[in-house]
Amino acid sequence: MSETTCAACDYPLDGNAIEVTIGGRIVEVCCKECAQKLGEAEARK
């Protein structure tokens, strides 16, 4: 079984992962701060 990690910081995810849609894809992050970072990075494109 492979371990899933945060799309923003590579921290191991647990049952509290947050799903965020970035570029039409759903990714999982560990916290609201990482979700915000990915959203800001997408907005700069």
Rank of each mutant, 00 (worst) to 15 (best):
M1L: 13
M1G: 15
M1E: 06
S2P: 14
S2C: 03
S2W: 08
E3T: 07
E3C: 03
E3M: 05
E3N: 08
T4W: 08
T4M: 08
T4S: 13
T5N: 12
T5E: 13
T5C: 12
T5A: 05
C6K: 01
C6Y: 06
C6R: 02
C6L: 02
A7N: 05
A7T: 02
A8D: 10
A8N: 13
A8P: 05
C9G: 09
C9S: 05
C9E: 09
C9P: 15
C9F: 14
D10A: 08
D10F: 09
D10R: 04
D10P: 01
D10E: 08
Y11L: 09
P12V: 01
P12M: 02
P12F: 04
L13H: 04
D14Y: 11
D14K: 09
D14T: 12
D14G: 14
D14I: 06
D14M: 09
G15E: 13
G15D: 10
N16P: 00
A17E: 15
I18H: 04
I18V: 14
I18G: 00
I18L: 15
E19W: 07
E19G: 08
E19F: 07
E19D: 04
E19L: 04
E19H: 12
V20H: 05
V20K: 09
T21D: 07
T21I: 03
I22R: 11
I22W: 07
G23V: 03
G23N: 07
G23L: 03
G24K: 04
R25E: 14
R25W: 03
R25V: 09
R25N: 12
I26M: 03
I26V: 13
I26L: 04
I26G: 07
I26S: 15
I26T: 15
I26P: 01
V27D: 00
V27W: 01
V27Q: 07
V29A: 05
V29Y: 06
V29E: 05
C30D: 08
C30F: 06
C31N: 15
C31M: 12
K32G: 09
E33C: 06
E33A: 06
C34P: 01
C34R: 11
A35C: 04
A35R: 14
A35T: 04
Q36A: 15
Q36N: 11
K37C: 07
K37L: 12
K37N: 11
K37I: 09
K37D: 01
L38H: 02
L38P: 00
L38V: 04
L38I: 10
G39V: 01
E40I: 03
A41T: 14
E42A: 15
E42I: 10
E42H: 08
E42Y: 09
E42W: 05
A43R: 15
R44E: 07
R44W: 05
R44K: 15
K45E: 11
K45V: 12
K45H: 14
K45G: 15
